[in-house]
Nucleic acid binder design. Structure first.
Lengths: 135, 135
DNA sequence: TATGGACTTGACTTAAATTCTAAAATACGA
DNA sequence: TCGTATTTTAGAATTTAAGTCAAGTCCATA
């Protein structure tokens, strides 16, 4: 019952960018990777996904790097996890975003418990925006 | 943010055995696998783990099979997930059972949110026993 | 036009999930 | 009592997906 490291990395990267959103400065992949101890090459892939998702903007060349495309208070944690992992249900078949057949459907009662958990997790992370995560 | 299928399978197997706990009958791996649509060979491994954990008893030979070692109300879902996956924290470093360094530690605020989620999930599943999951 | 960074592709590594092969125990019929 | 079918037990091989690494290409800007 855990988050993928992909989502964790994505959140950490966005936190870094959120912290420097005010000044409008850029941060390079290398800087983010070093400060948050994330494998650089993996982070490259993750930032590309975030870019395609419209969360960050990139600038090439010397002095290039990344910055947020929206203000931190307009990005919540739930949507990032969804973008990275597809869904954020404790069990996939509980997801309201897409339905996949998983074995747990065989027990309606267990399924309903996980549905409650999903809603709690979902609500919590939906309300958590990145401006709240700045140090 | 999801459960391993291993845990799902373990819970489904225990639900099946809980349903026939009254009569004291046995159920074979094959029967459980078919009724819950679980890969049989994988289920064999899972039931062995449950056996070593003291949750089920096994009997070989024709008419053999598995049955619960305790009554369903004495087994909760949390301990099964812990047995299968090691911990049930939404993020491992939040686990109170063993501590592992994960990248999310880099953000204390995010970590504390996940700690709250973990406690909620943990409490919910700790209180959920298998007698409540019988159809 | 040279450089520092983003981008692209592909391959490697590890762990989860699944399947394969074979052995050991037991009930039951001949 | 023996043999056989049925079941669990065990270890290992295979597959698949997540995570990681390597080498190089493209591009803005100083």
């Amino acid at each position: 019952m855990k988050l993928s490291v992909k989502s964790e990395y994505a959140c950490l990267a966005l936190i870094t960018l959120s912290e420097m959103y005010e000044g409008g400065e850029l941060s390079s992949i290398t800087k983010i990777a070093e400060s948050k101890e994330i494998p650089k090459k993996y982070l490259e892939q993750i930032l590309l996904i975030l870019k395609r998702g419209g969360y960050v903007r990139s600038y090439k060349g010397p002095k290039g790097g990344y910055k947020l495309a929206k203000s931190p208070d307009q990005i919540n944690v739930a949507e990032i996890i969804r973008l990275m992992d597809g869904a954020l249900a404790p069990v996939e078949s509980v997801s309201s975003y897409f339905f996949e057949h998983t074995p747990i459907e065989k027990s309606p009662k267990l399924l309903s418990v996980f549905r409650l958990l999903r809603n709690y997790i979902s609500d919590t992370l939906e309300q958590l925006t990145f401006d709240e995560l700045i140090e």
